[in-house]
């Protein structure tokens, strides 16, 4: 069992690996406020990367710089192989829903999408087919001919999603896509993300809903106050964090004393003694306990959840 989960493990893909997006040394300041501080991040091609972070941690700023909406103070952005002044050349293959949906209230949902479609470089010919398909895909077909003015928050969000999916994309960036959605809407988003993943697209998803990210993402990146705390494959991060054992025993004090004597950092925990990852492997720990005559009901590996990981990372840093 390896330890050292506190050290960030940036998913810096080896050279030659396909990367949908890459930022290096990215920094953004607004006056004296540092919004993003020296972030390196790779979004591997085909990944569903969930970007986590408390409100104000810089998720949206990072996404805006990635899409060329905001200029970085320092650092470089690479999007689908395009960088610098050429960044916009990547945008036809990028679908995005950033900072909530933006549409004109006096037009119907469908007319709004038709207007978006007119600006889509990849769309050639009659736009009505793709527009209706996108509306169908996000479950808005019935409300397509109603004015946007009368849409509920969830419908607006769905329309924003539809605009991001007007044409086949290589990268889809969704900033808080489930905001304002009911459970059915949340399921729809989850389904859409799965479809995108299955179609080979890369998805970058920012959220503060950890369960959401855990359910759909293959990778996570955790931001706090503009700094990237950790980034990597979700399974690996959870596994790494899952290191450690929980020992159920009536002789808690004896167990702790025995383990500390053996060199393992143990502490009291609910249901017995927790042994965080340390120099000792599981068999040695069990042996040490048995050797000290401690009664052991059960020893099991602690199963980590994203929520714990997130909480530990963000609290640790704070």
């Amino acid at each position: 069992m390896t330890a050292a989960t506190s050290a960030p493990q940036p998913v810096t893909a080896a050279p030659g690996d396909a990367v949908a997006a890459r930022v290096r040394g990215l920094r953004k300041t607004f006056g004296a406020t540092v919004a993003i501080d020296d972030v390196d991040l790779d979004v591997p091609a085909g990944a569903v990367l969930g970007m986590l972070g408390p409100n104000g941690s810089g998720k949206t700023t990072l996404i805006r710089m990635l899409l060329g909406l905001t200029r970085p103070t320092a650092g470089t952005v690479e999007l689908l192989g395009h960088t610098g002044w050429d960044l916009a050349a990547a945008l036809p293959d990028v679908g995005a829903l950033v900072e909530g949906p933006g549409f004109h209230p006096f037009l119907t949902g469908r007319d709004n999408l038709l207007r978006c479609a007119a600006a889509e470089p990849r769309l050639v010919g009659d736009a009505r087919g793709p527009v209706d398909a996108a509306l169908e895909r996000v479950g808005l077909a019935d409300a397509a001919r109603r004015r946007y003015r009368g849409y509920s928050l969830g419908m607006k969000q769905r329309l924003g999603l539809a605009a991001a999916l007007l044409v086949p994309r290589r990268l889809v960036v969704l900033d808080e896509p489930t905001n304002g959605l009911d459970p059915a809407g949340t399921r729809d988003v989850r389904r859409v993300v799965a479809e995108l993943r299955d179609a080979g697209a890369t998805v970058l998803l920012s959220s503060h809903l950890l369960a959401e990210v855990e359910a759909v993402c293959s990778h996570v990146a955790v931001l706090q106050t503009g700094t990237l705390l950790v980034a990597g494959e979700l399974a690996a991060l959870l596994d790494a964090d899952a290191g450690g054992l929980v020992v159920s025993t009536p002789d808690v004090d004896d167990a702790i004393a025995a383990l500390r004597a053996a060199g393992a950092p143990a502490h009291r925990a609910e249901g017995g003694v927790a042994v965080p990852p340390g120099p000792l492997e599981a068999p040695q720990i069990v042996a040490a306990l048995v050797g000290a005559g401690v009664a052991v009901w059960e020893v099991h590996r602690r199963r980590a959840h994203l929520e714990e990981l997130f909480a530990r990372l963000t609290e640790e840093d704070a």
Partner: peptide, 14 residues
């Protein structure tokens, strides 16, 4: 104000 400028820039319309 309607956040639609962002959509145009992302389309992208140069």
């Amino acid at each position: 104000a309607h956040s639609t400028l962002r959509g145009l820039l992302l389309a992208p319309v140069g």
